[in-house]
């Protein structure tokens, strides 16, 4: 009897060790490139050429330095680009949330024959590949004069974020009991009032989910803003990073510093909201 228990506990321990090793490897793989980048951003390019894997300051005559950051920050004009990114993200996410709840309430609780077609077209949008609208959007922006304007960036961003938001909002509002709305109707409340005073306050948790899903998407978006803007002062941080760091194929020091600057905002956002983000991703993904 004791023997059986012994073998069982040893196998459990071995299993645990194996599992920890697997997870350790994945953790290492996930973190290593980022740590490598961070470490090397404190080396000058000369030092990096001599010491590509180690910590800075290991080679005589060199020590860790912030000069890369200073150079990159000044030459890349990242301050303005970060403000642009914040502007694009905040405005489009606010509109995505507002329009999503408006559509979601109408689709879930108001009677109309149009719902089937309209809601259906939003759910098809969930599967659409964005690349396919790249060229038509560019041409349309060109014809309407929206090319290279802030509005011309915001409108596509809102439209692209809507399918996910509308889908989540509709499913969420559907689960709110209709009796609540009916009793408010009997008391004489108009639909707009019901929407503003009953539905919206109940949707705060979902607003957080939609916000988090759209913030990462909008902040990191690169392809569209890259073709829709040409004036440097209208571009977002990722485009600026690509323009600055992508061109520096041999000046690694500045390139790495620029990449860290590009990485930090989302890293900070993730560290603060990682619980909400990991929950939101699962909620957003289950949509098949």
């Amino acid at each position: 009897m004791a023997n059986i228990q012994d073998t069982k506990s040893t196998s459990v321990i071995i299993g645990k060790i194996v599992v920890y090793i697997i997870l350790g490897i994945f953790t290492f793989l996930a973190l290593y490139p980022i740590c490598w980048l961070l470490i090397n951003s404190f080396k000058t390019t000369q030092e990096f050429q001599l010491n590509k894997l180690g910590l800075p300051g290991k080679i005589d005559g060199y020590e860790s330095t912030l000069i890369n950051y200073k150079d990159a920050w000044v030459r890349g004009k990242f301050g303005g680009l970060i403000l642009n990114s914040i502007f694009y993200t905040v405005v489009s996410v606010a509109f995505i949330i507002m329009f999503s709840f408006m559509c979601g309430f109408a689709f879930a609780k108001l009677q109309s024959k149009a719902t089937f077609a309209l809601y259906g077209s939003f759910t098809i949008g969930l599967l659409m590949t964005l690349q396919c609208i790249m060229v038509p959007l560019f041409l349309m922006a060109n014809w309407t004069g929206l090319l290279d304007t802030r509005l011309g960036v915001l409108i596509p961003y809102i439209g692209i974020g809507l399918p996910m938001g509308v889908y989540l909002a509709t499913e969420y509002i559907r689960s709110i009991p209709t009796a609540l709305i009916e009793s408010a109707r009997i008391d004489g409340a108009k639909f707009f009032r019901i929407f503003a005073q009953i539905i919206l306050p109940m949707c705060t948790p979902l607003a957080v989910t939609i916000a988090i899903l759209s913030v990462t998407g909008t902040w990191n978006e690169f392809m569209l803003i890259n073709i829709l803007t040409s004036t440097p002062t209208l571009k977002s941080l990722p485009v600026g990073i690509q323009a600055f760091a992508g061109a520096l194929s041999s000046d690694y020091g500045k390139q790495f510093a620029a990449l860290v600057i590009g990485l930090l905002p989302m890293l900070a956002f993730y560290l603060v909201f990682h619980k909400e983000i990991t929950k939101g991703v699962a909620a957003g993904a289950v949509k098949g």
Binding site: M102, C103, S121, L137, G159, L162
Partner: peptide, 21 residues
């Protein structure tokens, strides 16, 4: 109420995704 709530979102979605496709 239905159309006021739906139209702003749908028009943008239509202009940006459905129509271009």
């Amino acid at each position: 109420a239905y159309w006021t709530l739906v139209l702003p979102g749908f028009l943008i979605y239509f202009a940006v995704m459905a129509f271009p496709t």
